[in-house]
């Protein structure tokens, strides 16, 4: 099938960092055949389901530790559990009710930590890391478990809309740009780098699945995105506790130097900007 070359000019302007008046013209819509998207979308659903399965098992262990009053274990399991959620956020967020009860932050509530509606991971984070106690956490733990299971069953039944899947890559980088660089996501546990990596993994997975299609449209774009992903991952790798064991996790976000925060902002912003064009590149509305 012949794929028309759309948006010739629109692809280069961000690379060149300029959108000079003449460098962007209205172009015909890209026409990646809809059936070409079926494979990658199906693969992505498998990825999401796999991560959900992990999320369920890890949440079981995490909440069990809380119910058993094992503070040290609960703290250790907090970040490694969340990471599965962070990877699949574009899909998880489709269920706004669950996203709020699982992942809202105290800033989302007028009364902050005291708000009776404040539940989920970050409520537990506050108890475990700020109060350093599992007291009173049992209900939140049980609630989280129930929400995660509910999420799992809803996603099983979900038909994945291609534009949500493809747009998810950009959405994840927006997450990073908005809340990870500033270090406000996990302010008590300081485990932001776990979430950071989770978002980047999730975005990269989507990008890799659609890469062959994108490459047909714009090879430079693909190369640039790869480079920027590599850059971000390289900086993140510097903060791994054990370079050979991904499960060992990351240093506290407090350890990240200002220079590295800036070094991360650059490629993250370019990724957000570039990936915001992925849907258009693949002709998705």
């Amino acid at each position: 099938m012949k794929i028309p070359k759309p948006c010739k000019t629109s692809k280069t302007w961000i690379a060149a960092g300029t959108l000079g008046l003449l460098s962007v013209t209205a172009t015909a819509q890209a026409a990646v055949a809809p059936e070409a998207l079926v494979g990658p979308v199906a693969d992505y659903k498998l990825y999401v389901l796999d991560n959900l399965e992990q999320l369920v098992t890890h949440t079981e262990d995490f909440t069990a530790a809380i119910e058993a009053g094992d503070l040290a274990k609960a703290k250790a399991l907090y970040a490694p559990t969340r990471v599965y959620y962070e990877r699949i956020e574009p899909i998880a967020e489709l269920f706004a009710d669950l996203d709020v009860s699982i992942d809202a932050r105290e800033d989302d509530y007028e009364q902050g930590v005291e708000d009776p509606d404040f539940t989920g991971f970050h409520r537990l984070e506050y108890g475990l890391f700020h109060d350093a106690s599992t007291d009173g956490m049992k209900t939140y733990a049980q609630g989280l478990m129930a929400d995660v299971e509910e999420l799992d069953s809803r996603v099983q039944a979900l038909t994945f809309p291609p534009e949500t899947v493809v747009g998810g890559a950009a959405a994840l980088m927006e997450e990073v740009a908005a809340t990870k660089i500033s270090g406000e996501e996990d302010r008590y546990s300081r485990t932001d780098l776990w979430d950071f990596q989770g978002n980047v993994d999730g975005a990269r997975e989507i990008f890799e699945l659609f890469r062959p299609l994108a490459a047909q449209e714009d090879a430079d774009f693909v190369a640039r995105v790869e480079d920027n992903f590599d850059d971000v991952e390289k900086t993140l790798a510097d903060y791994r506790l054990d370079p050979d064991d991904p499960q060992a996790g990351f240093e506290s976000y407090d350890e990240v130097s200002d220079a590295d925060r800036r070094a991360l902002t650059g490629p993250v912003t370019v990724l957000a900007e570039d990936l915001s064009t992925l849907r258009g590149l693949l002709g998705l509305n």
Partner: peptide
């Protein structure tokens, strides 16, 4: 000043 560029509406607008 001048006219802002247009772009395929499937993409984020340049302006």
């Amino acid at each position: 000043g001048g006219r802002i560029p247009e772009r395929d509406p499937l993409f984020p607008p340049p302006d």
